[in-house]
Amino acid sequence: MIEKPYGTAAAVQHASPRDWPPDSRLNPGPERAFRAICALALVLPLLLLATLLGRALQEGWPRLSMEFITAYPSRVPANAGILPALVGSAFLMGLTAVMAIPLGVGAAIYLEEYAGSSRLTGLIEVSISNLAGVPSIIYGLLGLELFVRAMAFGRSLLAGAATLALLLLPMVILAAREALRTVPHSMREACFALGADRWQTVRRVVLPMSLPGILTGIILALARAIGETAPLITIGALTYVPFLPDSVHSPFTALPIQIFNWISRPQAGFRVNAAAGIIVLLAIMLLMNGAAIWLRVRFERKLSS
């Protein structure tokens, strides 16, 4: 029992918070209103998304079957499938990744690890950020002029992938730089102090530590690219392809183009096909995003084990 000189508990327990000086924040109104607005900002887009997804599922789910995935397009909606589009998209993604990843990660490493801070690098940095926001149809026009015509790739997978790679480059560079920046400077110093040169520091210390972030950025960029339609239409991807691409020079179609084509047909049957196509496309994107999360968690666990 604590007594003098501290006084007794009873002596200090008589007061109530109501005796405290007034505070304007005691009015709960603004706090509640702000909270409600934020919640609305979350719920509204979610509702829209759910409606969209619900409509597509409702319309397209019955149409989904192995046959739909393995069939070639047809004039009869019930016989039409997405095989060439699916294979085209897969080839396109593979080629795009091969082109965009080394260039993008390399550029990011140069900017973060090697380049000094001059006016030129500042200009390059701003340009890259701006390029990431340029509408994709502009890239399509560039691809049409540069790859299809000037470099004579024709309306091929190669031209399509090169165009998409251009579109992805700024995104990959930005994501990779962001990931490289998360590696503390002290790690680079530790490595230099052990007698490492810059390449060894990047290879042994910086890249392993930033790999989860870089991979996540790449996958998210690819997931965006797989849904790109406008640049591919601009460079002249076909809409009716009754064969599979057999080389990087062959003409091609892709999932979003197939969907776009079906939606613009008058017959109701094609609309159902489009809905089913949308489900397939969404599933692929979800898988890619899931892979990004899985990779990040896995590498982060590895880093801290």
Binding site: S186, M187, E189, A190, C191, A193, L194, Q200, R204, M209
Partner: peptide
């Protein structure tokens, strides 16, 4: 050699690999 203010072992490496890091370089 140098030891810094804030301990900075390489997190992506094991204790053993940390000790051998300079040699590996």
């Amino acid at each position: 050699g140098m030891v810094f203010q804030k301990p900075n072992p390489f997190p992506a490496m094991s204790i053993r690999q940390n000790v051998l890091a300079g040699l590996r370089l």
